[in-house]
Amino acid sequence: MEIILAISKIGIYAIFGITILGAIFAVTLRNIFHAALGLVLALLGVAAVYFSMEAEFLGAIQILLYVGGIMTLIIFVVMLTSRIGDRTVPTSNHQRYPALVGILFLIAFLIRLVRETPWQLKAELSTIDAITIGKEFMGAYVLPFEITSLVLVVALIGAIVIARSDLKK
């Protein structure tokens, strides 16, 4: 039992490493198509983190929506644009090195903040299943649910209006 626990811990840290590796690929690779594939790796790693936290519903949603939907959209747009693999075109702007320095300071600050905060933890981890989430959505959280659906409809109609080609007069 001890060995299984140790192996599962190592597995979670390996998932963390793979996710961060995918994220680094997604923001640094020259070719934007390869960067989108790095984003797929990072999103699958985040889905694995959800599964390891016993949030199976969120993990399934993550794979369906992100890895299915958003990646299809991004790759679709990447295919529509030219000059993708051109090595003469710079892929980052002049803020690159100041941004890198600032980000390193931000990481150091956040790590110090996380380590020094006295967290009020509970003795036993809570788990929750999809049935409870659905009941809460229809109960206490019905207003955010309805507002989200309204925003979804408005935004999708807006996206169609923006992206359509010009009307023939």
Binding site: V27, I32, A35, I74, V78, T91, S92, N93, Q95, G102
Partner: peptide
């Protein structure tokens, strides 16, 4: 902050 490409 550092990408030029909008999709990036």
């Amino acid at each position: 902050l550092s990408r030029r490409h909008v999709v990036g």
